[in-house]
Structures are given as structure tokens and as C-alpha cells.
Design a protein around this nucleic acid. Structure first.
Length: 685
RNA sequence: GCCACCAUAGCUCAGUCGGUAGAGCAGCCGCCUUGUAAGCGGCAGGUCGGGAGUUCAAUUCUCCCUGGUGGCUCCA
């Protein structure tokens, strides 16, 4: 589902180049090569020159051929046809980028680079050098002007040292073919070779290319229909008085300016570990987590609850494979519209990718279905455990950003845009109630990001305004001049955390392309086959993100002086029985049958009462019942209520009724760990 | 993926200007029999993240790798 790379902005040439570099590595064909197909052999040297910071990738080649494609820099000079392609045989190719800090000392940088090239050329006994400007080596690229100056100086320097130098044009995208020689290859450089030698040309999905050209305008839409055009200056968003809507300001800034303020570890990471819920798994790939019993309980309850609600809405639950053929034509074309990075799997006879959503699984089912207009709207649903995205290493963060995540994904076929709008709002209510019942405050805890094409806005302005009205507080609207993605409208509900990070939970989209792409049809009133529109809903967003939001919300409560806690229906222990002394254990046990349908456990350790209370509080147990001589004869018990910090006398039956009322309509699972606290192993200190 | 920083007992951390390490908590054993967030004593616990290099000697210095955090980029 939910694709989402829809953000855009004016990108400077330098940033654009960096974006493309990253995408080139991530694109499907590149990755396959990158991972396994070709293990290039060749002599390769990679090094960062100390002092000045140029980065050079050396390849000793039998031949290098390149062809100039489009301009990467507007300012790049037009080239005569004779210079648009070239081939050089038997040479040392130096893929080179100048770093920001080289700008201060172009001469020094060029000289240092020349020395390094001379050194390597000497080792491989060649006098022929190809200088190939390759911005992708750099994370802190020099500006085009200085970079060109440095390259010019470098070329002169090399000529002066007696080399035959071939310069590849600067400021263009080029495809190239390399034949690398077959000397032994140094271990540390292998990946880098793969990137350069294997790809041949930079393959970038259309979605990524489109994004660079995408022009979008940002607005705040108020519930009463007032639209405020936003502008950004020096990282500050202007055009709307955000007073009283601080999180919306943070969200808008996050979307438009990418400003980052906090430098703290996200609160939920510490909590998920301390509460023994979830943890990193160093033995897997980053972003693939392990769940301890308490965390598994919470996740399973959320999964059951979400699925139940989506089924109640009328969706037909299905299950589809986790991996798909790279060469499937519809998938191939779809991948090109979806800029995510994939995990690659080599099956015995084909290359496959792990799904990043349930989209194609459901589309492939839908294309074989026989559907009448009478059956629309028609939703299919799957809880994907897991969906995979090979996010960049540095982008991963706790439960907020993962490489393997659990995504409830519900696609509905609708006949036309009117039905789409109507159904979207039915699903809006589903998602709203769902998140509220999961423990979030609606709409206080979330901010809407709505993305529409200009055309959609012009024709369906009333719908967008009605949406904002239903939401009940101002929303952020991004408007694109054209449709670059497969949808004309989408919205996300974003949780904004204490570190000013936004994470999308619920999202729904109106997809105008994929029915055609996948050959999905229904028969209309006139007996004609037609392509439906497809809605892409994740009613809650990734389940991991729901947990993230609940933990961050709890952390914020703690910071504000309120007790951090999970909703009672998700609390691993709902009632902890704490006997005052050892001989009170027996009576405490007799209370258990009166707390049926509740996760109740018993602290039978020999600890002091104070210690037992403390341990229960550290576990965020919502109800702690102390049992001593006073209670032993029957009658009311003393309940320590976490939420209100009070100690209340109440009958056991009243406590049971109270908890049942609080957890009504939510799924139930028994304790994930032994009833006796003393019998529980520790998963993490 | 890039840049910076971090990695010592199950957890939180101290320490070693290069000579293989300590505390608190948790665990185990014993005492205490407790009335609402840590009762007392003892015992045990470490290839100082992994690999390579320098050195008579590396947890300590260098390089590489792995994992994590922050930033960039990106995103559900």
C-alpha cells in the first residue's frame, strides 16, 4: 500500500544528484547485481585522500565506454555529438568527486588527487587515465563550480606528469560500460566495485525522476474551508498563525523544511526494552526486531483487533505470498512507480523481491476475479506480517522505521470517483474509531497530511473541505501541479513525537492507475468491462508504529507528571496480586477465579511489600491489589490504581466489572508469562 | 548509503597515561515475615562487541567489520 514518497521540493542540482545516486543503487536492477549476480573481478583501489577530501574510485579497465544522457546541471554546456560518447581502452579509470571542504583549496586538492592517481597508475603500469566525475561518491559534495575547477586543475596536473588523460563530461548523466581487469580484488572494496562496474547505467524509477521535477504547493486548510498558502524561509514555515497548533507547525516544518531539532534517543526505544516488549536483534538484518512475550502479546492483540474491525467493515480477508517475481510485467512497471528499495531473494530459479506492501498480492488476486458492479465497493484485506523495505541504514529508528513491519492493508475496488470519495469517508470512520480504541486521542494525537493533484482539488474541493471539517482541526495540504504517482489523492495521519519526528499511521489513497496495469475489471450496468478505481487503506498504519505511538504518548505523559501506561486492554498484566507476607499467598490465590477474563498474576517472591509494589509499578501494571490479614476474611480489597494514583477500597467483583467495562469490545488473551512472578525468566535486565 | 559519536557482567555505569578489570541493581544461597516505589548478609558472574595490525605485552593505540545513537538523505 501506501506508497508514500510524495514529498517534494525544489531541489538544488547538488541535492538532486545525491538523490539520484542513492536511487541508482537502490533501483531494482542495480540491486540485483549489487547483491549477487556479478562478482566483478578486477584490480581496484579505493581511497580517500587525507588532507584534501576528494574521493576516488579506481578501476583498472580493459575498456570504458560512456554515453552522455540528459543534463544533471542546467548550467552544463551543450556538447557536440562527437563528445557525447567515447570509448577508452586499457586505462585506469578514476571515478572522482570533490568534497565540500576542497572548495577552500582547489589547487591542493587537485595536487593530492594527482599524486594518488600517479601512485595507483604506477602500480598497474598504465599511462592512460580516464577522469570520470562521479558525484555519487560524496556525501558532502562540492558545488559544481569549484568541483569543475578542481577537475580542470587535476587534468593539467596529470598531463604535466606525463599521463594521457581522458575527461568525461561534467554535469551530465551518463551511462557507461566498464570491463574491469581480472586481478585479485581487495575485500574491502568489493561492494563499491559492484556499484560502479555492474550497473552500466543509472536506473532510476520514474517515480524518483518525476519527484525531482515535481512542483508542489503547501497549504493549511481549516475546518471552515479557509485555505492558507504556506511559504518557507530560513527553515521556518510562514503563511499561517500556528498558535495553538504547535504540533501541526512541527509537522508542516518537518514536511517542508526537514528541520531536525532534538538530538535525543527516541523515548520509545528505551521503553520497549525496559518493559521487555521488543528489542533489536543483532543476529538479523537491522530493522528486523525480536518480540518478548509481553511485546508479542501486545502486538498480537493489536493485530487481532485491527483485523477484526476491518472484517466488520466488510473486507474479505485473504493471504498472499511474501515474495514476487522481479520479471512479472505488471510488477515491474509498478515497481517503477514506487521508489522503495527492496530486499532481494534468490529462489532456486528466479530473482524475487520481498513485498513492501500487500498491493500486488491483492491486485494479482483481483485480476482473476469476476466482479459485478453490484458487488462494489469491494474491499480485500490482509495483515502483512511482514512487509519489507530495505531502508537505508541510517533511516532506521526503533519501532518508528523498520525494514520488516506488520502492515494491515485493505484495498477496495470502486466504480468511479464519486464512490471512491464516499467509501473513503466510510473508511475514515473505521480508522478513526480504531485508533481511538487503540488508545490514541482523536484527533488530538495526530496531524493530517493530505496530498492532492491540482486537478483533483479543482474538481473535488468540496470533498477536501468536508474532510477537514470532519477532522475537526486544521490540516496540511500538499498540492501537486500534475499526477506523478499512481494516485490522485491520499491522506496520512501523522503522529508527531517529542523529537519533532513525524510518523504516518493511517493512510488511504485513490489509485487511478493500477486496475489498468494489473488488468483488474468489473462488469458495469451495461455489461461492459471497466477498470475500477482502487482505494489503498492502512487503517492503523504499521502495527509497530501503533506501539511506537502508544509508547511515545506514555513517555510524554510521564514527562508531564502523569503516570505512563498502556491502555488496560493492552497491559501485559492487568491485575497484580501482591500478598503482604508469605502466608497471605494462599488467600490471594482464591481471588483469581473471581477475576475471570482478566490477565491477573501473583507476586509470590519473598520480597518486601515495598519491593513488590515497586516492581509492579515498574511494569506499568494498571491495578495492584495488596492482600494481607485485613483482606483475608473476605470483603473489599485495596486497589492501587495507576491511572489516578489513588488507592481504592473495592469489592473484587467491582474491580472485575470495571476492567471488563474498560476493555469491552477489545480482544483478550491470557497472560503471556507464568501466573507466578517467581517463575518468570528475565529476558532483559 | 554518507558523516560524527558510542560498544566493559543480564541491566546501568566506573576504570586501565599499554602490564587481561570494579560498583550498584538483577541472579543464586541464607536470614527477615514485611501494609503500598528498593530489608540485611554472603556467593557467583567478564575472550572489556568481532577480526586483523603495531608491540615483549592490546580491553586501552591503528585499521576493518558488526550493532546502536544523532545528523544528512529517505519513509508506513
Amino acid at each position: 500500500m501506501p506508497i508514500t514518497r510524495v514529498r517534494s521540493r525544489t531541489i538544488s542540482p547538488v541535492r538532486w544528484r545525491q538523490t539520484r545516486a542513492a536511487s541508482a543503487i537502490g533501483s531494482a536492477n542495480d540491486r540485483s547485481l549489487f547483491h549477487r549476480t556479478r562478482r566483478p573481478t578486477g584490480t581496484l583501489y579505493f581511497g580517500t585522500i587525507s588532507g584534501p577530501a576528494m574521493r576516488i574510485l579506481f578501476l583498472h579497465v580493459d575498456s570504458l565506454e560512456y554515453e552522455v544522457k540528459e543534463k544533471a546541471l542546467k548550467a552544463a554546456p551543450d556538447l557536440p555529438a562527437s563528445k557525447r560518447r567515447a570509448r577508452v581502452d586499457e586505462a585506469l579509470a578514476a571515478f572522482i568527486s570533490a568534497e565540500k571542504r576542497d572548495e577552500a583549496n582547489p589547487g591542493g586538492a587537485a595536487k593530492a588527487a594527482a599524486e594518488s592517481i600517479e601512485d595507483v597508475a604506477g602500480q598497474v603500469h598504465t599511462k592512460r587515465i580516464v577522469l570520470y566525475p562521479y558525484a555519487h561518491l560524496s556525501s558532502s559534495l562540492a558545488a559544481p563550480g569549484p568541483a569543475q575547477e578542481i577537475l580542470g586543475l587535476l587534468e593539467k596536473e596529470l598531463v604535466a606528469r606525463g599521463f594521457e588523460v581522458h575527461g568525461s563530461p561534467f554535469g551530465y548523466y551518463k551511462s557507461f560500460k566498464v570491463a574491469v581487469k581480472g586481478h585479485p580484488l581487495s575485500e574491502l572494496s568489493r561492494e563499491i566495485v559492484a556499484e560502479a562496474a555492474a550497473s552500466g547505467k543509472e536506473e532510476v524509477s520514474d517515480a524518483v525522476k518525476a519527484e525531482a521535477k515535481l512542483v508542489s504547493h503547501w497549504h493549511i486548510l481549516e475546518p471552515d474551508g479557509h485555505m492558507h498558502h504556506l511559504s518557507i524561509k530560513d527553515g521556518k514555515v510562514g503563511g499561517y498563525p500556528f498558535e495553538g497548533h504547535e504540533r501541526l507547525r512541527t509537522f508542516a516544518t518537518y514536511e517542508m523544511a526537514k528541520s531536525r531539532e532534538a538530538k535525543e534517543e527516541p523515548a520509545h526505544v528505551r521503553l520497549m526494552q525496559e518493559l521487555e516488549l521488543v528489542d533489536y536483534e543483532p543476529g538479523s538484518d537491522p530493522g528486523n526486531l525480536r518480540y518478548y512475550p509481553k511485546g508479542k502479546l501486545i502486538k498480537a492483540l493489536l493485530e487481532e483487533f485491527i483485523s477484526e474491525r476491518v472484517r466488520e467493515y466488510g473486507a474479505l480477508e485473504v493471504e498472499s505470498p511474501v515474495m514476487y517475481d522481479f520479471e512479472h510485467p505488471a510488477l515491474k512497471s509498478y515497481l517503477n512507480r514506487f521508489p522503495a528499495r527492496q530486499y532481494i531473494v534468490q529462489t532456486p530459479n528466479k530473482r524475487a523481491f520481498l513485498r513492501f506492501s500487500a498491493c500486488f498480492g491483492q491486485f494479482l488476486i483481483m485480476k482473476d476475479m469476476v466482479i459485478s458492479y453490484k458487488q462494489l465497493p469491494l474491499p480485500l484485506y490482509e495483515l502483512t506480517r511482514y512487509s519489507f523495505r530495505a531502508e537505508q541504514r541510517g533511516e532506521l529508528a526503533g519501532l518508528r522505521r523498520l525494514r520488516a513491519f506488520t502492515m494491515p492493508d485493505c484495498h477496495a475496488l470502486v466504480s468511479d470517483i464519486e464512490m471512491a470519495k464516499e467509501e473513503l469517508m466510510v473508511r475514515f470512520e473505521l480508522a478513526w474509531n480504531l485508533l481511538e480504541d487503540c488508545g490514541l486521542s482523536m484527533p488530538d494525537d495526530l496531524e493530517v497530511g493530505m496530498r492532492v493533484t491540482q486537478a483533483f482539488w479543482d474538481e473535488h474541493k468540496d470533498f477536501v473541505i468536508a474532510y477537514a471539517k470532519r477532522w475537526g482541526k486544521p490540516i496540511l495540504v500538499e498540492m501537486w501541479s500534475d499526477q506523478f504517482f499512481y494516485f490522485v489523492q491520499k491522506y496520512e495521519w501523522n503522529f508527531v513525537d517529542a523529537n519533532a519526528k513525524a510518523a504516518a499511521l493511517t493512510t488511504d489513497q485513490i489509485d487511478t492507475e493500477n486496475a489498468k496495469r494489473f488488468g483488474i475489471t468489473f462488469t458495469d450496468e451495461d455489461g461492459k468491462k471497466r477498470h475500477p478505481l482502487i482505494l489503498h487503506l492502512s487503517p492503523s498504519g504499521a502495527v509497530e508504529r501503533v506501539i511506537y505511538a502508544l509508547l511515545e504518548k506514555a513517555a510524554a505523559a510521564a514527562k508531564a507528571g502523569r503516570p505512563p501506561m498502556l491502555p488496560v486492554w493492552l497491559s501485559p498484566t492487568q491485575v497484580r496480586l501482591v500478598p503482604v507476607a508469605a502466608d497471605d499467598v494462599e488467600y490471594a490465590r482464591t481471588l483469581v477465579p473471581r477475576l475471570e477474563g482478566i490477565r491477573v498474576d501473583l507476586d509470590d517472591s519473598g520480597d518486601s511489600l515495598g519491593k513488590k509494589i515497586r516492581n509492579a509499578e515498574k511494569e506499568w501494571v494498571p491495578y495492584i491489589v495488596v492482600i494481607g490479614k485485613k483482606e483475608a476474611g473476605g470483603g473489599p480489597v485495596n486497589v492501587r490504581i495507576r491511572e489516578t494514583k489513588e488507592q481504592a477500597e473495592m469489592e473484587v467483583d467491582a474491580l472485575r466489572r470495571r476492567i471488563h467495562a474498560e476493555t469491552k469490545g477489545r480482544p483478550f488473551r491470557p497472560l503471556a508469562e507464568p501466573f507466578h512472578v517467581s517463575e518468570r525468566p528475565i529476558f532483559r535486565g
